[in-house]
């Protein structure tokens, strides 16, 4: 579903992504973790081309998103992206946030879009907030709206960039529950997150990144009990101390 083939990226002189080759299969849930500055966010942002790459190929659902002449917008409509700071549109109601893209890009009629949006809101558990504005919602509710917004165009892949890092602890659970139910329904997901419980519950594989490289790819069980790379082990022991 997502294929990285020898991907390199530089910020000026800084080598942000180093010779990345990896694959996310259809229906797979991959959790990307690692210390701060390891390139996890950069990597996931290259998948829908919010970041450019300098070498290598990234394929999503068979097509090269970084190729010249790609219809970038149609591509992005097929990829759902959830940001760390939600990035909901404050001048639009919750419902309008969700119907905007399907109506303008997906060619749906407004009533159609509204119907699907209400169904999505019900699925993430906040159908009653449809006419509220984002600023009036709690952080956890906003992020769930953001997930619904990303799901509205029925993407083939969902990308999550530290979706719970900006939330107060008591709201992390409600967002993770939505993500877990998506995973169980068979969505292909790539998640940058520190929530190891999530990785253990629904993750198929864990990628450990450090300084721009993927140092280890293993199942959650293997990773948490018997990580091979010394830096992965150091990272895990740091996590446990907290």
């Amino acid at each position: 579903m997502i294929k990285f083939n020898r991907v390199d990226k530089w910020y000026g002189d800084y080598h942000a992504l180093v010779d990345i080759s990896a694959e996310v299969a259809r229906g797979e849930v991959v959790v990307v973790c690692g210390p701060s500055g390891s390139g996890k966010s950069t990597l996931i942002r290259t998948v829908n081309r919010l970041e450019e790459i300098h070498k290598g190929v990234i394929e999503v659902d068979g097509a090269d998103i970084h190729a010249r002449g790609t219809d970038l917008n149609r591509f992005r409509a097929n990829i759902g992206f959830v940001f760390q700071s939600f990035n909901l549109f404050p001048h639009l109601s919750v419902l309008a946030n969700i119907t905007l893209a399907p109506a303008k890009v997906g060619g749906q009629s407004l009533p159609q879009a509204r119907e699907s949006a209400m169904a999505l809101l019900a699925r993430v558990g906040i159908a009653d907030k449809a006419s509220a504005y984002p600023q009036q919602l709690s952080g956890g509710q906003q992020q769930r709206v953001a997930i619904a917004r990303a799901l509205a165009q029925k993407p083939a892949v969902m990308l999550f960039d530290e979706p719970t890092s900006a939330l107060d602890p008591e709201m992390v659970g409600e967002v993770l529950n939505v993500m877990k139910s998506l995973a169980r329904d068979g969505m292909t997901m790539m998640c940058v997150t520190h929530e190891m419980g999530f990785a253990r519950d629904v993750g198929h594989r864990v990628w450990f990144m450090d300084r721009g490289r993927i140092l280890e790819q293993s199942t959650p069980d293997e990773f948490f009990t018997a990580a091979r790379h010394p830096r992965a082990q150091a990272f895990l022991s740091d996590l446990r101390e907290h």
């Binding site: 701060s36 950069t42 760390q84 700071s85 960039d161």
Partner: peptide
Amino acid sequence: THDQVQPG
């Protein structure tokens, strides 16, 4: 500095 995603 709101809305700044930390490059991970």
